[in-house]
Structures are given as structure tokens and as C-alpha cells.
């Protein structure tokens, strides 16, 4: 696991394992040591505390749904890059063996044509933004591998974020339940006193 960045160097050295935010700056949810003091004493406003906790929860859920979307995008992108790299590898292998091969390639979703691929030196890589550039096979391979590595890193970051968010959501959910229970108990005690 990556060590925490130097920006958190001001944190207490005695507790380096519990930073206040994860590497992407998602804040840590506070654990309520004591419900009563969180609410503000025995006559504190539970309603207000519940509302603020619900707000925190909604923010975490929003971040979670964003991260889930990002993860989904990356989970499509990674295999796509892997397939492209496999194709470049095939072209390289064929070139080294001085072989040509026939292909049935896609013209449109339901239309295929056949063609012969002779020794290929260059391929065109779609870079996005309506741009395509030609690269020698080996450079294309390097470029695509770099992109794949970057996508894999982002994917693993998103997964870390999601797991971090999972923790914060659980803490907040437990907080909500505890404040709620505390309030129910207080009401019951007051009723009994009357």
C-alpha cells in the first residue's frame, strides 16, 4: 500500500495510520465517542444532529455514486486497451515472422469485409478529440501500454476510494442509528417520569 503523502506530515506522528482524509482528499467520518456530548448535553437537539448526519451521509453517497460511475468507465476501458494491445502484438508477431494474414473486419455493426494484411510497419492510433496519429508498431505498443498502466492505476485508486467511502458511510450510518436510539430512549425516560 502507498504511504501517505507528505502533505499530511503535520498530523500527529503517534497516529500515522488514521489520517483525516484519504489520498484523494475524501474526509474521514467522525466516530461518536459519546452520543450525548455530540448532541450537546442531556437536553440537546437530536433532530438537528440527525439532520446534519443525514447531510453528511448524502454527500458520501453522492461521492460513492460518482466513483462507481468512474469505476464502470475504467472497467470498460481497461479490457478495450488490452484487446488493442493484443492486436498490436499480433501485428508485431506476424511482421517478425514475415507472414501476411487474411482478416474479416468490421465495416459497420452488421457488415464485414475481407482483406489481406501484409507486413505492417505503422498503425493509426485514435487519440480522441477527432485526432488520429500514425505510429510505428513499437511506439504504438509503448504508447498503449502506458495508457493501460495509467488506466489500471486510476482503477485501483477508484477502488481504494470506494472502499474508503464504504467505511465512512458505515460509520455515519451507525452514528445515525445511535443518535436515533439515544433520542428514543430519552423520550421514553421522560414519558416514564411524567
Amino acid at each position: 500500500m502507498a504511504s501517505t503523502s507528505t502533505s499530511t506530515a503535520t498530523a500527529e506522528p503517534s497516529r500515522p495510520s488514521s489520517p483525516l482524509a484519504n489520498p484523494r482528499g475524501i474526509p474521514k467520518a467522525i466516530f461518536l465517542e459519546n452520543v450525548e456530548s455530540f448532541i450537546g448535553g442531556p437536553d440537546g437537539d437530536a433532530e438537528e444532529s440527525l439532520q446534519s448526519l443525514q447531510q453528511v451521509l448524502a454527500k458520501y453517497r453522492y461521492m460513492e455514486s460518482n466513483s462507481l460511475q468512474r469505476r464502470q468507465g475504467l472497467e470498460e476501458k481497461v479490457p478495450e486497451l488490452e484487446r488493442t494491445i493484443a492486436m498490436v502484438e499480433t501485428l508485431q508477431r506476424k511482421k517478425t515472422a514475415n507472414e501476411s494474414f487474411d482478416t474479416t473486419f468490421e465495416l459497420s455493426d452488421t457488415l464485414y469485409a475481407t482483406g489481406e494484411v501484409e507486413e505492417v510497419d505503422e498503425v493509426y492510433v485514435w487519440l480522441g478529440a477527432n485526432t488520429m496519429l500514425s505510429y510505428p508498431l513499437s511506439s504504438a505498443y509503448t504508447l498503449l501500454s502506458t495508457k493501460l498502466a495509467a488506466a489500471q492505476t486510476s482503477l485501483s485508486n477508484v477502488k481504494q476510494d470506494l472502499s474508503w467511502l464504504r467505511d465512512q458511510i458505515t460509520v455515519t450510518e451507525v452514528n445515525v442509528a445511535r443518535v436515533y436510539n439515544w433520542d428514543v430512549k430519552r423520550r421514553r425516560e421522560r414519558r416514564e417520569q411524567e
Binding site: R83, F101, D102, T103, E106, Y112
Partner: peptide, 12 residues
């Protein structure tokens, strides 16, 4: 020869 599917193309 067989048709091997790689991405959207079939290679013979």
C-alpha cells in the same frame, strides 16, 4: 485456417 476473433475483427 480458422477465424480468430480479436476485438471487432476476425483474423484468419
Amino acid at each position: 485456417e480458422v477465424m480468430y476473433k480479436l476485438d471487432s475483427s476476425f483474423l484468419r
